[in-house]
Design a protein around this nucleic acid. Structure first.
Length: 585
RNA sequence: GCGCUCGUAGCUCAGUUGGAUAGAGUAUCGGUUUCCGAAACCGAAGGUCGUGGGUUCGAAUCCCGCCGAGCGCACCA
């Protein structure tokens, strides 16, 4: 309908231009919007006001000329000028009914489109270091990323969902060493656990498993291990140097193969837990991409060579630097450390290049604490001759948790955090998924655990699900009464749906496809949650003022088609959010 | 100090390329069930859109200053 109106307006404007009533040249893009106030009609357009300046005319005057030149359309019942120069359209309500036919016809596909026509995009999200279980901060990125992927897929993108596994680097070494030290404790050694080690309870668990499988294969004397190691912070030393020394000691005492065994045991255990956790959260991936694989297949060196060839690399103090300031970054960045090891940044450059080379545009969902990292990655892509516009970073604020009215501090290292799994167990995946995407991603978010766990009706998910369940309930009752539902009959009598509640509900149904498109293009799932609440409100209001199971069979069938169409749209929307649409509550 | 994100009802938040009287939920107050599920519905009240300027027909939205919050400023990942 919007495009139809736009085309009518375009014709009128062209006509005026040829009569020299309006200046030639490109007219402003015609924007048709739904009105907020029903007294303003169904659709409104501000094009007359946009033309006021170039035409040097009163906007209301222009609006009148446009209306006078507007071609007739059977579904437009009235056109008005209002306010400073809006053109308001009143649409024949019966023409809106057609959406119900469309919904019945398309079912679960209703609302989807092929706007993106199969363009390939990779959504990389969560990608937490496999050094511990996911916590509620990661949960938001998981819910958001998964929903974004669903939305993009719904408008025709070919979406690749990927988890980038940081299975290399110092943090993993710290984890492996932490596991080994706990293992020694399990085997009866006493030692002072490093202050910078991973202290979560999952570490001794992995250590115990290791002992069950391998016995005392990795056994060592604790005094030997700690002999000549730089002092830890509590002992007046440096915690970073302390843990680094312990890592070196672990590698040298265990030897490459045994160290790798422990390292992989820790990695596999934690990654397995993360996979399981995300699966339970309804989050699916097409690929779990290993950072280590970039080293194994030389992709990192290739990328670095490419950077060097670009002329934006230089050597300083034994390290290789990328001159990212050439591309607007704050400072230059190290790619190869003076000890010869490549940095995380080097891996990430290689990873992004690799993804682009596979033909995907990139959407990275990152925690907002990584926002300073964006310019350097884009700079690297640009230096290597790639288009940095092909990479889009969506930043997600961490949720701040409140319990008993107090803010909870979280840190993976200290082992003090609420895990995603705990959250799911307490409030359920549906509520968590919905709650997480209800707010704009870059908005700070207060997550009140007491509120979420109380299952109060504060949680709007129940409201939406209830609307869906209510339709199901009506249909159950219909069957109990021995009555039958005829879609055909209902579709044939849509013209009987003339009550205000019905018109409003149908109007809301009409808005769904555009809303879905907008939510996807702007990466804003919260638009969908707001829409679904609106739709549920319309339905509940209708439900309370009209009965559906009535004596007039034609009217009843028409109403049943309407509420089933509503149910379908609720279902489609919730499905995109990764939330169930229950038949009963 | 510099940079990024942000400041809207008591609280949690919408307000999408600048549009008409700034909207929901929740909390508060008052109504609605012999009737398809009251986890619902209807109504009232609630605002100097942080603040001061600027841009124009028109600003919560764009520009600048100030105040306040969060995050970032590693040869960590």
């Amino acid at each position: 309908m919007k495009t139809r109106l736009a085309s009518l307006l375009q014709q009128a404007i062209s006509a005026l231009q040829s009569q020299s009533e309006l200046p030639d040249g490109p007219a402003p893009t015609i924007k048709i919007e739904h009105t907020r106030d029903p007294s303003h009609g169904d659709y409104a357009c501000n094009v007359a006001m946009m033309l006021a300046k170039p035409a040097k005319k009163n906007p209301r005057e222009i609006a009148q000329s446009i209306i006078d030149n507007l071609p007739a359309d059977t579904d437009v019942t009235r056109v008005e000028i209002a306010g400073p120069g809006f053109i308001n359209f009143f649409i024949n309500p019966l023409s809106q009914h057609a959406i119900i036919n469309t919904i019945v016809e398309q079912g679960g596909a209703f609302g989807k489109s092929d706007i993106a026509s199969g363009k390939k995009v990779q959504v990389e999200f969560v990608s937490a270091n496999p050094t511990g279980p996911l916590h509620v901060g990661h949960g938001r990125g998981a819910a958001y990323g998964a929903t974004i992927a669903n939305l993009l897929s719904a408008i025709g993108y070919k979406v690749h969902r990927e988890y980038y596994v940081n299975d290399a680097g110092r943090q993993m070494d710290i984890l492996a060493t932490s596991v080994w030290l706990r293992y020694l404790e399990v085997c009866g050694e006493t030692l002072t656990f490093p202050s910078n080690g991973y202290k979560g309870s999952y570490v001794p668990t992995i250590a115990t498993e290791l002992k069950n499988v391998h016995g005392e294969l990795f056994m060592a004397n604790a005094d030997d291990v700690f002999n000549d190691i730089t002092a830890d912070e509590p002992a007046g030393g440096d915690k970073e140097k302390h843990i680094d020394a312990l890592i070196s000691r672990a590698k040298e005492q265990l030897g490459h193969d045994h160290y790798r065994l422990i390292f992989d045991a820790a990695l596999n255990s934690i990654l397995g837990d993360i996979r399981n956790d995300l699966e339970g959260f309804g989050v699916q991936y097409d690929d779990w991409f290993s950072e280590r694989s970039l080293m194994d297949n030389n992709a990192i060196n290739t990328a670095i060579e490419k950077l060097k060839a670009s002329g934006h690399m230089y050597q300083k103090e034994g390290a290789w630097w990328f001159k990212s300031t050439d591309f607007g970054d704050e400072k230059d960045r190290v790619v190869i450390r003076d000890n010869g090891q490549t940095t995380y940044f080097a891996s990430d450059i290689a990873y992004h290049l690799h993804t682009l080379n596979r033909g995907y545009d990139i959407i990275d969902v990152w925690g907002s604490d990584h926002h300073g990292y964006v310019p350097r990655v884009k700079a690297a892509l640009q230096a290597m001759g790639a288009d940095p516009e092909r990479m889009k970073v969506l930043l997600v604020q961490f949720a701040v948790l409140y319990k008993n009215g107090e803010k909870m501090q979280m840190s993976t290292r200290s082992g003090q955090f609420v895990t995603l799994r705990e959250l799911r167990e307490e409030i359920g995946s549906d509520a968590a998924r919905y709650f997480y995407v209800m707010r704009k991603a870059e908005q700070h978010m207060d997550f009140d655990l007491d509120l979420a766990t109380s299952q109060s009706n504060e949680n709007p998910l129940f409201y939406v699900q209830y609307a869906h369940a209510r339709v199901c309930s009506v249909m159950r009752l219909l069957a109990e009464k021995g009555l039958t539902y005829s879609v055909e009959n209902g579709l044939n009598h849509l013209d009987k749906l003339t009550e205000t509640h019905e018109v409003n509900l149908i109007d809301t149904l009409n808005r769904y496809p555009a809303k879905l498109l907008q939510a996807a293009q702007h990466y804003e799932p919260h638009q969908l949650t707001h829409y679904l609440r609106d739709l549920a409100t319309q339905f509940h209001s209708y439900y309370n003022s009209h009965k559906f199971i009535i004596d007039d069979d034609n009217l009843m069938q028409a109403r049943l088609v309407l509420i089933n169409a509503t149910k379908q749209v609720l279902h489609n929307g919730l499905n995109l959010l990764g939330v169930n649409a229950p038949e009963s509550m």
